[in-house]
Design a protein around this nucleic acid. Structure first.
Length: 168
DNA sequence: GCCAACGTTGGC
DNA sequence: GCCAACGTTGGC
């Protein structure tokens, strides 16, 4: 990644996000074990997060891969490789993400596909982000926030890349 | 394990 | 449309 973020690709601004996951349900290793280190980000069942996936997240965007739980930290960078599209798991009665209110004609939930890019050389713990004054307004750090998909502002992204010693 | 914060549900 | 009850998230 070069300096001067936000970068553009094909005239399009690349936005940055944070994808939160509880590692006991889906971890970085799960992503790394996927074919081509690509996987689908399914099961989001929160309307605000759904709206971001459906309306804003674009292929080429970048995201921090964040583990919640025992050792909360941003640990890797992934690339968004699709726009949002209907989350079929909502249609499957055997899926833990089944939602009978969702239909093919009227999908209620959306997902996108992601690809692993790199681990952060130094994972950035939640604690370190809280301790960094320039990250004070970060969405992740807002009290009581529970979104699993969060926007990351360009300056926040740069700071976290630096903290994570991520340089390319 | 606790509990604050938040989203969702459902009775009215 | 209001709001109390409930379930879930997630840091600590």
């Amino acid at each position: 990644m070069k300096s001067g973020f936000p970068e553009t690709r094909d005239q399009q601004v690349i936005n940055t996000w944070l994808l939160k996951t509880e590692p006991s349900s889906y971890s970085l290793d799960d992503l790394l074990n996927c074919d081509k280190r690509c996987d689908t980000w399914e099961g989001v069942r929160n309307y605000q997060a759904r709206n971001l996936i459906r309306d804003q997240i674009m292929p080429g965007d970048l995201a921090l891969f964040y583990h919640s739980g025992k050792a909360p930290a941003a640990i890797a960078v992934v690339e968004i490789i699709t726009a949002g599209y209907p989350d079929d798991t909502a249609l499957d009665p055997r899926s833990p993400y089944y939602d009978p209110r969702s239909t093919i004609e009227n999908p209620r939930w959306f997902r996108m596909d992601v690809r692993w890019l790199d681990n952060l050389p130094r994972p950035v713990p939640l604690k370190a982000m809280r301790a960094e004054p320039r990250l004070a307004t970060m969405a992740l750090l807002k009290k009581g926030q529970r979104l699993s998909v969060l926007p990351v502002e360009p300056h926040e992204w740069r700071i976290i890349m630096t903290m994570g010693q991520y340089t390319t």
